[in-house]
């Protein structure tokens, strides 16, 4: 109708567009955060895919890095879960394998998923895992136990100031949502 209400309407449309845009922005923060953390490696997430190890990699014997392993269970996850090696000294570029022990003490089959996290977070970019139980969900029959290997090397580019870092695994019970078949045990 009037000129006034026309210009009101135009303005409302613009403002609603901002509102919708900001709602979208909230969701865009999710991939933005992942990409940002991926590039900078600041939230301690390691690569979820296997790295390939080049046998010709130069091992930097002048440096020795201490890698520590800790495990914990999400509350309600009944498995016993522990690192067989708690700390290990490696030279950057050297391939090492460590093992983790799991046992399902309950009377039901359970599927677990381990989530790695590195502290200090910046070290995560330089930890390359060529093989890890955390890449896949792990089924374990009632009462069964298993040794799960993890093979890794530390990138020689690791910043000089990092001499020790810790890799922690948190084990989650994903039985309800998993699509993996129950065959181990």
């Amino acid at each position: 109708m009037t000129e006034q209400s026309q210009s009101n309407n135009r303005m409302v449309i613009k403002l609603v567009a901002i509102v919708i845009g900001m709602f979208g922005f909230g969701f865009a923060l999710v991939p933005l955060y992942d990409v940002f953390c991926d590039i900078t490696g600041i939230n301690g997430k390691t690569n979820p895919y296997a790295a390939t190890y080049d046998v010709n990699t130069d091992v930097d014997t002048s440096r020795e890095i201490t890698v520590e392993f800790i495990t914990r269970n999400q509350s309600g996850m009944p498995w016993d879960f522990e690192a067989r090696t708690h700390r290990i000294k490696v030279h950057p570029g050297e391939l090492k394998t460590v093992e983790f022990y799991v046992r399902n003490p309950t009377g039901r089959d359970i599927i677990g998923q381990a989530i790695p996290s590195v502290s200090p977070g910046t070290a995560a970019l330089y930890l390359n895992k060529t093989e890890c139980f955390c890449f896949e969900q792990q089924p374990l029959k009632a009462g069964a136990e298993a040794l799960m290997p993890m093979q890794f090397y530390v990138d020689p580019q690791l910043p000089e100031d990092i001499k020790v870092f810790t890799l922690s695994y948190t084990l989650y019970d994903v039985t309800g949502t998993s699509t993996v078949a129950m065959n181990r045990g």
């Binding site: 900001m22 709602f23 922005f25 909230g26």
Partner: peptide
Amino acid sequence: LIAVMPVLAGA
């Protein structure tokens, strides 16, 4: 308000 309330709604 119009910049951040939608972000809360997203959360």
